[in-house]
Simulated assay, not measured.
Amino acid sequence: MDMGHVHYFVMGDWLLFLAYLTSVVGCTIGLACTLHARYALDTRARMAWLALASLSIGGVGIWLMHFVAMLGFATPGMPVRYDLFRTVLSAVLAVVSVFAGLLVFGVRPRFAWWRLIVGGVLTGLAVNLMHYSGMWALEIKGTISYDAWLVVLSVVIAVVAATAALWFTVAVDKPLHRLAAGLVAGVAVTGMHYTGMAAMRVHLDMSAPDPSGVEVFSFLFPVFVLAALVLAVPICAVLMAPAPGSRRPAPPKVGQPV
């Protein structure tokens, strides 16, 4: 078995910016929905907002960002394919896992540190779950292993930055500050992704059979179209909804007991 050379930015460094921008857009819209969920007047409305947030963050901010970044991955002279079932499964896992994290954090309007920490941990782990399940779908001529310490670092980056992003959604009131939450969340997702990629050890084997599956370009364009349609719903919902907290007293300041 031969340790071959792989490329991570075969399409250019600009792909890093595009991946980060994709994550920021999805996360910013999702965190705005999370804030509305905290102020929702009934359980049904709260769950609807959290579902929109999960689709935005998990489906676009995490899953779509991952495969945009993977456009830069190549094994020169050898094919790279993706198992379609595992790819779809990674998307479902991302959305469901993010929903679990946001459910803890956004289920009540009152701030509580334990909710922030648990929600941040679950949301950060959702980022990691999506990444490594997405990499599970990757098929090459050879095998893939991981550096354990860099994997742990990728988990820490995702959890810390996700927790900070959730804190931003309740610690500040101005729209520009909420955008900062999306920027921080984008750092969590993108930073975790490339740390996870740095942890990857690719062992190429010319004698191995050609991988089955589909090329990333064959499903990414329709996914972009679907993502645009998916984001249209929460964007319209956020624009049409009353300002968060306008129909009930503002929550206590960060750090005040529940």
Results as ranks from 00 to 15, higher is better:
D2Q: 14
M3Q: 12
M3W: 10
G4S: 13
M11P: 06
G12F: 12
D13T: 05
W14L: 08
W14N: 11
A19G: 10
Y20R: 11
C27I: 15
G30W: 00
G30R: 00
L31P: 01
L31N: 00
A37Y: 01
A37P: 05
A40N: 10
L41K: 12
R44D: 14
R44L: 15
R44N: 14
R44K: 15
M47G: 06
A48I: 04
L52M: 11
L52K: 01
L55V: 12
L55Y: 07
I57H: 02
I57V: 10
G58Q: 13
G58M: 12
G61P: 04
G61Y: 03
L64N: 12
M65K: 06
M65I: 03
F67G: 15
V68P: 14
V68D: 13
G72Q: 11
T75G: 13
T75K: 13
P76Q: 02
P76L: 00
R81A: 14
D83S: 10
L84V: 14
R86M: 14
V88L: 09
L89C: 05
A91Y: 13
V92W: 05
L93W: 04
V95I: 11
S97W: 09
V98R: 00
A100F: 11
F105S: 00
F105H: 01
A112L: 13
A112Y: 13
A112T: 11
W114H: 14
L116M: 08
L116P: 04
I117Q: 07
V118P: 06
G119Q: 08
V121D: 14
G124R: 01
L129G: 04
Y132P: 10
S133P: 11
E139C: 10
K141H: 06
T143A: 11
T143N: 07
W149L: 07
L150A: 06
V156S: 02
V156Y: 05
V159C: 04
A164H: 07
L166Y: 01
W167H: 09
W167R: 09
W167V: 04
F168L: 07
F168I: 14
V170C: 01
D173I: 02
K174W: 09
P175F: 11
P175R: 08
H177P: 00
R178S: 05
R178Y: 12
R178D: 03
L179G: 11
V184E: 03
A185V: 01
G186H: 04
V187Q: 06
A188G: 07
V189A: 06
M192I: 06
H193K: 10
Y194I: 08
G196D: 04
M197E: 01
A198K: 07
M200W: 08
H203F: 08
H203V: 12
S207P: 01
F217E: 10
S218E: 15
F221L: 15
P222R: 08
L226Q: 04
L226P: 06
A227D: 15
A228C: 07
A228R: 02
A232N: 12
A232T: 15
V233A: 07
V233S: 04
V238N: 05
L239Q: 13
L239W: 09
A241N: 05
A243F: 02
A243E: 03
R247F: 15
V254F: 01
V254I: 09
Q256P: 07
V258I: 02
